[in-house]
Design a protein around this nucleic acid. Structure first.
Lengths: 112, 112
DNA sequence: TATCCTGATTGATAATCGTCGATTTGTCAA
DNA sequence: TTGACAAATCGACGATTATCAATCAGGATA
């Protein structure tokens, strides 16, 4: 009885990294499929119905993970991914704040 | 007494277009400089202090305009740009909504 | 008109990025 | 061990994109 494990690292709060992670149609489709459940890479490949294959899905998941937008859970030989809703919300709030007027350069390198 | 004129078209609500517009460091810097005032292309080029030149600034402004993130005002031979705060907020809200769970595919092609 | 100024457009180039086939790594079950 | 499966990594290729120099279009002023 082990293996189950959450992503530990605090997600990066970086407006450019965040936007780049979202700046792809395929990645957004993956995010939609992960918004309500945990799916493995194989699950995602199946749901894409031959439009993209396994290495590509892995590649996109890596980018999303680097941006802190997905959580990973390892279970046996599977890895289950799900969307990190909280971080998405935090980043969206940060965007609005970053580009708000009367802005005196908020520091986003440290988590609030 | 004429010339002064706002951008008429309702900005597009498209999560991928929005993210792509934000997915560049230079563009985000331009957005920061436009968040509190109206600046001309020449103003922006000066503020960038030789790091990017005029055609590049124009190119970035075009992308931001296509995403509805800047407003333009023509005045004589000048064109003044400023950030469209409202649309930025709308798009961020849309992102959170789009990837929220219990989502029954909200239509974003029509403005709310 | 001619000239100057502002900013958009074009064409070329280099860098980045998405995609895939092939391979590798890691885990479970015989 | 071995074999089977899941998923990451690697290398290559094509498409997209950021950038710049050069040019062009429109408006102001003389």
């Amino acid at each position: 009885m082990n293996g189950a494990q959450k992503t530990p690292r605090t997600p990066p709060i970086d407006p450019v990294l965040f936007a780049k992670a979202l700046a792809d149609e395929t990645r957004q489709e993956i995010m939609k499929r992960l918004c309500c459940c945990w799916l493995s890479v194989t699950d995602l490949v199946e749901q894409m119905e031959g439009r993209i294959n396994q290495p590509t899905v892995s590649h996109h998941l890596k980018k999303l993970e680097e941006a802190g937008l997905v959580r990973v859970r390892r279970e046996g030989r599977h890895r289950y991914y799900t969307l990190n809703q909280e971080h998405l919300t935090v980043c969206c709030d940060m965007l609005v704040t970053t580009f708000a007027p009367q802005q005196t350069d908020v520091d986003h390198s440290t988590v609030l």
